[in-house]
Design a protein around this nucleic acid. Sequence first.
RNA 1: GGCGACGUAGCUCAGUUGGUAAGAGUGCUCGACUCAUAAUCGAGAGGUCGUGGGUUCAAGUCCCACCGUCGCUACCA
Length: 502
Amino acid sequence: MSRFYVTTPIFYVNDVPHIGHAYPTITADALARWHRMMGDDTMFLTGTDEHGLKIQRAAEENGVTPQDQADTTSKRFRDAWELLDISNDQFIRTTEPRHHVSVQELLTRVKDNGYIEKATYAGHYCVSCEAYYNDGDLVDGDHCPIHERPVEWLEEENYFFKLSSLEKELTEWLTSDTVFPEGKRNEALGIVKLGLEDVSITRTSIDWGIPVPWDEDHVFYVWYDALINYATAVGFGSDSAEFERWWPHAHHIIGKDILRFHCVYWPAMLIAAGLEPPREVHVSGYLLLGGKKLSKTGLTQIAPADLVADFGVDGYRYHFLRDVSFGPDSEFSYESMVTRYNTDLANTLGNLLSRVATVVAKKCDGIGPAPTADSPLAPVAAECYAKAADGWSRFQTSVALEATWFLLRETNAYLEKHEPWKLEAGSLEVADVLGDALEVLRITAILASPALTRASTSIWQAIGLDGSPTDQRLPDAAEWGGYPGGCSVTKGAPLFPRLAVE
RNA sequence: GGCGACGUAGCUCAGUUGGUAAGAGUGCUCGACUCAUAAUCGAGAGGUCGUGGGUUCAAGUCCCACCGUCGCUACCA
């Protein structure tokens, strides 16, 4: 049995959940669900990032404490993930006591190992980014290039992390199979090749953060506190046996905007602390609207709940897992969501279940027959399973689902070829054809369950099986012949009612 | 300026280490069917794999240049 520890970024609580947050979270969720079915020891973590100047100021503006501010927004993320059937094992918040202990412990180790020193830092600071900028990076003289707001001049005595002394170790780590896709690994490698400068990791200008244990005037800069959440959640600083169990099996899913932090700073911190860097980092692109970043389009105003209202949880999840190719930037469009829903979910899958259920009712008295061992669909199912498993293992969710749907299309063609609705009721041939189709529905319910958390169970029940698809164990459950026959097949309301094209 | 990514059918994209006459879905055209959610099935049209060179028996897949889009980074200031 292998271990699979998957994480999403932890989301900053100045922003409410939108589809840009939901995308990596759904991806991580589907992967976690797949690995659970594979029988892997699986841990799925998400959470919220709650420290920093921006939170402190937002709280002041709202007339509440930073903790209140964090509590409110953090809950909105938990609610959003509940709505989307996110099956995270843990939800970490960086304001938790266990995280404070963990951060202080990890960075103390870094310091004890000689990787932290004191120096003065001064520069243009963007409160929104929580980052310093060089003059050349600014636009319009004094505006942050990301937020296009004026930066502020800050000068403070800080502790620095001696990143520059870890180039060799980082190059070594990045040269192995660690960052995906490969292009992103080269990008990270490029950052290291250009030469690394030591980075400031503490602040004295604010107090909404985790105190530096060896100097009470300082708190850790929010980024360095945030990264450590991945270690905290699996027991660093609190449960060494648990930490041993999960680390370094981490698979981080991130957006390309935080590549530098996850592919350079984070592994460097771990190495400096005498720990192993994460196993893998998977970098996704941006969701775009009209070729522009989500954050610049107003699309962040679209709450997942709005789309769930139109497409259902399954429709929402399926669209992002199937239509977004993990890695490159991806164009978001409502129209393509409608198309995908209608063709794959309503037509290919939903309609297949409907027609099979109807014919079983008419020709087999509603009792689903067993499949045939030598069905021509058996090798197709085996190949689709292999491709799907490969897709899931490479974080290529769209590849995995495309492979799964191929089996459904072949099954529709198989029905067309044998026309069971024209055959004699109760005949052997009609039982064979319908048994094969039901077997495909059983296998598909399992293979699609990481995406279709609800419909997969509906299909399972409609073809008369007990339990649920998520209780099945792969790869055995995907073997042809698992449908026992003799089950009562029921035709319910359409699984995915077609959506009118607007 | 330096480094890097990307550029494959109208659209969205697969193409793992170079090798069967370029793939899928969707869209479009034609035909079939009517069990089914006006669903399904079949056939077809549609690509100089950004452009131009090069390496090789063989390149979408490697090398160089250029064009386009984007990113990281530097300097001048």
